[in-house]
Design a protein around this nucleic acid. Structure first.
Length: 613
RNA sequence: GGUCCGGUAGCUCAGCUGGAUAGAGCAACUGCCUUCUAAGCAGUAGGUCAUGGGUUCGAAUCCCGUCCGGAUCACCA
């Protein structure tokens, strides 16, 4: 098992499509010819030429100066001359210190563009019929309170990484394990029984998950009061927490639930039903979904039997009180409880059960858990336990461990009411998007329905992009007042660029311009156009890298770079008014290809892009 | 205390498998709409890459120490 934060990758980040794989063997051959040594493949490193120098791709020659027994400049010069001679698409080279900058012929890039423009699903690999299956678990809510900002990050990451892996040829099953049982669920049930007066989502007009959450808070309030009372009577805080009537009643309720008490089960089903309806609404608004949902109430007993199996095989041991433990001291960890003395299961037991069932139901090649980094230890243990139990996939499970979302004043705390509610946040974003487009007068003349839809896309785009552009492993700060912007490195900026391109393309169509094929690939093109094509050509590598690193942020940052470059181009060049038809068509093809990369890339983040805004 | 993660502009973040003068956005200031959408573009200003060593031709990037922050080490989930 590994944390993604430790994942090392092999491929380079900024390589250009095919180019460095094409050139690497040539360089190896040249080094061999010139200096009589076979270079280690890793020492042949290409990078994108920095903007301040002339060229498209740069070979770092420092690794070869020893075997060349020459200065870096001389070495670079020799290799450059040979490359120019041997490779037909190299136009020229120049040497700066130990850097050999190669300029590639424009024609090479134009041919690339032509191929990209006429290809379908550029940048993504469709899963083949016998593709390996990756199961991705995300969301995994408790059914006692509504979703909040932390869940939003989880959901967006889970959904996006599923799309990204799909684009890398995996067969994906998105799954959700709903934590629908346990003492915390009983707390809200009990509070509702005692103080609810039969309130329902219908009678109160409240969303089901919010209603149940309200009673969870209610429980806590009364529970705390009872603890205070008992402490005044002289009990220690610890004892008071154990002896409070409410907690005892909740435990009693849990016991009844486990025994299948009809009344309790009915209440449980009713209240969970409210919560599910509420969650479905939030998921839908957020645009995330699942292929298969598991419920812990269905899987926890399977965990128990697996643990008992392990006990029988002496993998685990039992204490005098009857509790079952795993001794992980040989793995550098502690001892871990798996079954309580009364035979009830804990979190770990349930995860073992769920994993077992999943592997029975699906031919899983890779199992991914999208869960916060606060549970790193848990997954380390889970991996070892599954391995000990004889599951071959145990040690290979992936914990996609992501950082917490913090507010400017620190961690979100439900007890202090500083939690940012998911539904509220989404509504606010859409509302702001709506106001902004009205202020800008961009949507005049569109139907109310269209305006609503665009506001929804833009508001959600802002939120999603804001969260996904950050490296998932890192904690991030979310300032509700300031964080969400519609300018600069934001979702709306990218969506805007897409809409802008679409507008140009519509006008081209109105004028009857046919740019369906890039006919002339022998054009003189500007540096900006050249660079845009190179950026476009990098897209497939970015998708691949994002898959290897499990990082939607790579996609987000790439699209931003692309869009920023495009806007400069858009400002500097005319497209439709260009008098040279070939050049005009080239610019249309570049624009259209970029619009399509934006759409695909944003799609990998779960963000829609409008045709106009 | 043990283990793990992080510290880059005032703020939010890129860059980190070692490569050229560390980049964006926000906030501040200055320009650019009679021309394909100004949610845009151009510019000014802003840095001891926490800190001290080490490895290297070369370190924000790798190694070690220190400081600061966070997570975790539950018969919670």
């Amino acid at each position: 098992m590994y944390y993604l934060c430790r994942l090392k990758t092999i491929s380079k980040k900024h390589d250009t499509m095919n180019l460095d794989t094409q050139l690497t063997p040539v360089v190896a051959e040249i080094i061999n010819t010139l200096y009589g040594v076979q270079p280690v493949p890793e020492t042949i490193q290409f990078q994108k030429t920095r903007k301040e120098f002339e060229g498209d791709i740069t070979l770092v020659v420092f690794p070869f100066v020893k075997s060349a027994k020459k200065s870096p400049e001389q070495t670079a010069e020799m290799i450059g001359a040979k490359l120019l001679n041997d490779v037909d698409f190299i136009e020229s080279y120049n040497v700066v210190k130990g850097f050999l900058n190669l300029k590639i012929k424009a024609n090479y890039w134009l041919e690339q563009l032509k191929a990209i423009h006429s290809s379908e699903n550029f940048g993504t690999t469709k899963p083949s019929k016998n593709a390996d299956l990756m199961m991705i678990e995300y969301s995994s809510p408790n059914t006692n309170k509504p979703l909040h900002l932390g869940h939003i990050r989880n959901n967006l990451l889970g959904y996006s990484i599923s799309e990204i892996q799909k684009a890398n040829g995996w067969d994906i099953v998105k799954t959700n394990i709903v934590n629908d049982r346990g003492i915390h669920i009983c707390k809200s049930m009990l509070a509702w029984q005692m103080f609810g007066n039969g309130e329902t989502p219908e009678s109160s007009g409240m969303k089901g998950d919010h209603l149940v959450g309200k009673y969870y808070v209610e429980f806590d309030k009364h529970y705390k009061a009872e603890i205070q009372e008992l402490m005044l009577q002289g009990l220690s805080e610890e004892d008071a927490k154990k002896e409070a009537p409410l907690i005892k009643q909740a435990q009693e309720m849990l016991l009844k639930w486990e025994q299948g008490n009809k009344e309790i089960r009915t209440l449980w089903e009713t209240m969970n039903g409210w919560v599910y309806a509420g969650f479905d609404e939030t998921y839908k608004k957020l645009g995330v979904d699942f292929d298969k949902i598991y419920y812990e109430s269905d899987t926890y007993t399977e965990g128990k039997s697996k643990v008992e199996e392990g006990l029988a095989k002496n993998i685990f041991y039992q204490r005098e009180d009857g509790s079952v433990w795993a001794d992980l001291t040989n793995d550098g960890l502690d001892e871990k409880l798996l079954l309580r003395a009364d035979g009830t299961s804990v979190y770990m037991t349930q995860d073992i059960g769920t994993a077992t069932i999943r592997y029975e139901e699906y031919p899983i090649k890779k199992m991914v858990y999208v869960v916060g980094n606060e549970q790193n230890y848990h997954f380390q243990v889970l991996s070892i336990l599954l391995d000990k139990l004889g599951f071959e996939w145990g040690k290979d499970l992936v914990h996609f461990s992501y950082g917490m979302v913090e507010l400017p004043e620190g961690k979100m705390k439900s007890r202090e009411g500083t939690v940012v509610d998911a539904d509220d946040l989404i509504a606010e974003m859409v509302e702001t998007a709506h106001e902004t487009s009205q202020e800008l007068g961009k949507l005049d003349g569109l139907s109310d329905e269209e305006i609503e839809n665009i506001a929804r896309m833009v508001g959600l785009g802002a939120l999603k992009y804001f969260i996904l552009k950050v490296d998932p492993r890192k904690n991030m700060t979310f300032n509700p007042k300031e964080s969400i912007d519609f300018n600069g490195n934001t979702g709306p900026f990218i969506q805007y660029t897409h809409a802008r391109i679409k507008s140009v393309l519509r006008k081209a169509e109105e004028q009857g311009i046919d740019h369906s094929a890039l006919r002339n690939t022998q054009l003189e093109i500007s540096e900006k156009e050249n660079y845009l094509i190179q950026l476009i050509a990098e897209f497939p590598n970015v998708v691949k890298q994002a898959g290897i690193e499990f990082s939607p942020a790579l996609i987000a940052n790439y699209i931003y770079d692309l869009v920023k470059e495009y806007n400069q181009f858009y400002h500097e060049f005319t497209i439709l008014r260009e008098e040279n038809d070939d050049l005009r068509n080239l610019r249309l093809v570049i624009s259209e290809t970029i619009a399509s990369v934006i759409k695909t890339g944003m799609g990998l983040l779960g963000i829609e892009v409008p045709e106009r805004m």
